[in-house]
């Protein structure tokens, strides 16, 4: 069984800065996994042509089971409000997604509130850090019919605020530990190296492969 995690950057290409739907479809086919956790996912956003990117990715991956879980409604980095569990609004959304070729018995979301303070972030191409407000996060888990029985696959994209992301991770892992095992968490944790160990007792890393930046990965 093949599991994957990818931060979509809302489908934008670094080569020309464009969001082209066929490239998202190509990415899904290249990854060719049974279950894929998606981060930085748009639904109904102008910048990505109003697409439901989780649905589009699932269609290209041949995944009949999928879910988009909004972290916020509105425009990320501009005007937005935190999404609530059970909401499915006809407004632009931004968050995470999970797609599965295997049947899903149950979906679970875990809300992870934003840090209450701004934090300095070094934006690629700039020399000085920019003080950014955090945005709400969440975890999305699917209890999947695996080849040897049920397993839980989850995804998340944690805060860039040091310490706060560990707090979110602890909360998420606690919630996930009550779901059918084995449990695999796929995602963009924004936690360097083995720092996760502070809160991930009983959990183990599955892979140590650099994925960022895409051109020449270092982390």
């Amino acid at each position: 069984m093949r599991l994957a995690s990818v931060n979509l950057l809302h489908g934008r290409s670094l080569s020309d800065g464009q969001v082209v739907p066929s490239r998202l479809a190509d990415a899904a086919r290249l990854i060719d996994a049974d279950v894929v956790g998606l981060q930085e996912v748009d639904r109904g956003q102008d910048r990505s042509g109003g697409a439901d990117q989780t649905a589009a990715f699932a269609a290209s991956a041949g995944a009949a089971h999928w879910r988009f879980a909004p972290a916020l409604w509105g425009t990320p980095g501009a005007s937005w409000r935190a999404a609530l569990d059970g909401e499915d609004l006809a407004e632009p959304g931004y968050g995470i997604g999970l797609v599965s070729r295997r049947p899903v018995q149950r979906w679970v979301t875990v809300r992870l509130p934003a840090a209450p303070v701004r934090s300095p972030v070094l934006i690629p191409g700039t020399r000085r850090p920019v003080w950014l407000a955090d945005e709400p996060r969440l975890g999305l888990a699917a209890v999947v019919d695996g080849p040897h029985g049920p397993l839980t696959v989850a995804t998340t994209h944690l805060s860039f605020v040091p310490g706060w992301n560990l707090r979110q991770l602890r909360r998420l892992l606690r919630a996930l530990s009550s779901l059918p095992q084995p449990v695999v968490l796929l995602g963009d944790l924004n936690v360097p190296g083995a720092t996760h160990r502070v809160v991930s007792h009983g959990w183990r890393p599955l892979a140590r492969v650099a994925t960022y930046p895409s051109v020449r990965p270092r982390v």
């Binding site: 069984m1 599991l3 990818v6 084995p182 968490l185 892979a207």
Partner: peptide
């Protein structure tokens, strides 16, 4: 990626795609 419980990894790779500033992290489990 983090795991709780019995998961046997048979392969890992980072796949560059036409989108994003991240590669996709892929894990094969047995």
């Amino acid at each position: 990626m983090l795991a709780l419980g019995e998961v046997r990894v048979t392969g890992t790779e980072a796949i560059a795609t036409p989108i994003s500033d991240h590669r996709a992290l892929v894990v094969d489990i047995g």
